[in-house]
């Protein structure tokens, strides 16, 4: 899809929409849609932990990622590791020693940018559960097409045809990089360019989080 303002076209992210507390049993839940990519997450915590997983100084943070079809394999385990490390860095786990915080992610639809959507959905669910966090996380996906253009928040088709794919997660205080995962080969300048584009777009995601929470709590007060 070409437009006259090509630069502006690539800087915008797909429509973000979310619903918090859509599941009644978990302590926190969120379903987030970035364009057509939808991920449901649920948080149980802080809850009792199995004795062999007990940690004396902090909570045991456990993540399960369920793909839409098939059994979890190596790619799912890598995704779990990245998401877990990303969110563990932001959660104040030292507040809940000898407890466990369980996060379950379910892929509902994949139209590109799955890892980014998972991280965003997980962050919203943790917020919804009321768990104390140092900062928020916003993740974004960008690709470099075969022509060398940077496309922000691509669809699955654009991702598959791209030369290189990037997923970055930023924190809300200093906007520094928490997570980076890439596919394909690229140069350092291309890397920096994508990093900057994703960083400026992450502000929109942080604004969206604020808006979501505002809307939710203003509704409760009105009741």
């Amino acid at each position: 899809m070409l437009s006259d303002n090509k630069e502006n076209e690539t800087q915008s992210i797909r429509t973000l929409s979310a619903e918090l507390s859509n599941l009644s049993r978990p302590d926190g839940s969120a379903i987030v849609a970035q364009g057509d990519t939808v991920v449901q997450s649920a948080v149980y915590g802080p809850v009792e932990v199995r004795p062999n997983k007990e940690l004396p100084d902090k909570a045991y943070f456990d993540i399960v990622y369920k793909p839409l079809t098939g059994l979890p394999g190596c790619p799912e385990k890598l995704r779990e590791r990245v998401i877990r490390n990303t969110l563990e860095a932001t959660l104040l786990v030292n507040l809940h020693p000898r407890k466990s915080i369980n996060l379950i992610l379910q892929e509902m639809q994949n139209d590109g940018g799955l890892l980014a959507c998972c991280i965003n959905s997980a962050c919203m669910a943790l917020m919804d559960a009321g768990l104390a966090m140092k900062c928020l996380v916003a993740a974004l996906n960008a690709v470099i097409t075969t022509e060398g253009d940077v496309l922000l928040d691509p669809s699955l088709k654009q991702e598959e045809e791209a030369k290189a794919c990037f997923t970055f997660a930023f924190e809300s205080i200093n906007h520094e990089v928490i997570t980076s995962n890439t596919q394909g080969s690229y140069s350092e300048t291309e890397f920096k360019k994508c990093l900057e584009i994703c960083r400026s777009a992450s502000m929109k995601v942080f604004d969206f989080y604020r808006e979501c929470v505002q809307r939710r709590f203003s509704k409760e007060i009105d009741r």
Binding site: R84, T86, A169, F170, V177, T182, S185
Partner: peptide
């Protein structure tokens, strides 16, 4: 000279 994978799986944030 090209980068193949820059893998930073979460953890504490790093300045550019």
């Amino acid at each position: 000279g090209s980068l193949v994978k820059l893998y930073k799986p979460g953890g504490l944030q790093l300045p550019d």
